Amino acid sequence: MNSNSPSANSSDTYSQRLADIVGTAIALITLTLPVFIISHYSSPDVQNNQQNLSYHLVRSNK
């Protein structure tokens, strides 16, 4: 970096700060929104619909 270069002006730092805030907000929404949507649409009384499988074997007496 050149030591003679002027420092970043205030509008550049403001836009960079705004971009950081917007990016953080998008990241938080992306991570938390699916969890809230899934919890909203999932039923609180989930029934266990597993069926017992039983096989009746017939022996042949030959």
Rank of each mutant, 00 (worst) to 15 (best):
T30Y: 04
G23N: 15
Q50I: 12
T24Y: 04
S11I: 13
S39H: 03
Y14D: 08
S15V: 05
V58S: 08
D12E: 14
Q50Y: 05
N48A: 08
I37S: 01
V22P: 01
P44G: 06
T24N: 04
I38G: 08
N48F: 13
T13D: 04
Q16P: 01
V35S: 11
I37Y: 05
Y14F: 11
P44A: 08
S39E: 00
N2S: 11
N9M: 02
P6W: 00
S7F: 13
N9T: 07
L57Y: 07
A25F: 12
A27K: 09
K62Y: 06
L57P: 00
P6R: 12
L18P: 00
A8T: 09
V58D: 02
V46T: 07
Q51E: 09
F36L: 11
D20S: 06
I21F: 03
V58Y: 01
G23W: 09
S11Y: 09
V58M: 12
R59V: 00
L53N: 01
K62E: 14
Y41A: 02
H56N: 13
Q50A: 11
A19Q: 08
S60H: 10
S60L: 12
G23I: 11
N4R: 03
Y14Q: 06
N52I: 00
G23Y: 07
V46E: 06
S5K: 05
S39N: 05
P34L: 01
V22F: 13
P34K: 04
L31S: 08
G23R: 11
Y55G: 00
D20H: 03
S39G: 07
P6V: 07
V58W: 00
Q50D: 08
F36R: 06
Q47I: 06
L31Y: 04
F36W: 10
A27P: 00
S10K: 05
R17S: 15
Q51H: 04
S42T: 14
N49Y: 07
Q16S: 15
V58I: 15
V35R: 12
P34E: 03
T24L: 10
I37F: 02
Q50G: 06
T30K: 09
T24R: 03
V58E: 02
